[in-house]
Amino acid sequence: MPHDDPDHPHSLLPPDPALRVKALETILTQKGLIDPAALDVIIDTYENKIGPRNGAHVVARAWRDPAFKAALLEDATAVVSELGYYGRQGEHMVAVENTANVHNMVVCTLCSCYPWPLLGIPPGWYKSDAYRARAVREPRAVLADFGVTLPEDTAVRVWDSTAEVRYLVVPERPADSDGMDEAALMDMVTRDSMIGTGLALPVERSAP
């Protein structure tokens, strides 16, 4: 950033909403209601520490360990909390499993409720009106936009998240992935596959 730019004799003015946020922070800090350092910790956590790798870890374990998967489908809140992926907003987690017969997909029609501890901050499209409205009305068309075409006889089930209940899709395990270790399996679990707008990546065939 040039400090001697004649066009900017004063500091660059942040956009209007940024100043409004600063004003809220100033007032709440003065009242002793917030700790500015805690805000930085929260931002760092969501920008750098929490993301879809957490969810991928859970999915890869479920693929490898039937008892873990059974427990996850029975009570996901308890299982993911034990791994440290607990929701600080007090929400309940539900894991839904994709099979050859059922494909699950998650939306939040109210706002953008999302399993932050497992997937991080939702992508823009998850928060868009287009996705929020269409996922329920025409899930197959939405899936097609994401490049996912399912067999005719696979049922599509759409789960509407709330502030209280959030969902994790356990995608189908890719064919020919038997015997792969957890780290290799995790690499095939994409964020979209855990929202249900994608599938897990296929096993890369090694050159003959």
């Binding site: 940024a18 809220l24 917030i34 929260i42």
Partner: peptide, 9 residues
Amino acid sequence: AQVFALTVH
């Protein structure tokens, strides 16, 4: 990020 963190906090 700021407004998100403020709300979560």
